[in-house]
């Protein structure tokens, strides 16, 4: 029942993109998501496949970044100032 409730929480195309991006992550690093725990690359992919809370959070972070790129985060004044410092 719980699995049924999880269905389609992540758009099908988004899910494909998120998993494709996770596939290139190294296997020797773990993500730590607060009290949710630590997860390997394989576990991250499993959670996205299951569309549970952890999978949703991983997808949310990736979509947030893609949105930030679209909005030109690297062209914001604060980033440009940092670039000119180095």
């Amino acid at each position: 029942m719980a699995e049924k409730e999880n269905k389609n929480k992540i758009n099908k195309d988004v899910k494909k993109i998120v998993i494709a991006r996770l596939e290139v992550f190294p296997a020797d690093k773990k993500i730590s998501i607060g009290s949710k725990g630590e997860f390997t690359k394989k576990e991250m992919i499993d959670h996205v496949e299951k569309e549970d809370d952890i999978g949703e959070k991983i997808a949310e972070v990736q979509l947030n970044y893609l949105q930030a790129l679209k909005e030109g985060i690297f062209y914001e004044q604060d980033f440009i100032n940092n670039t000119t410092k180095t």
Binding site: S32, I33, T40
Partner: peptide, 10 residues
């Protein structure tokens, strides 16, 4: 929101 970071397994 959640504070997220990565660690090296070894």
């Amino acid at each position: 929101d959640d504070f997220i970071f990565f660690i090296e397994d070894d």
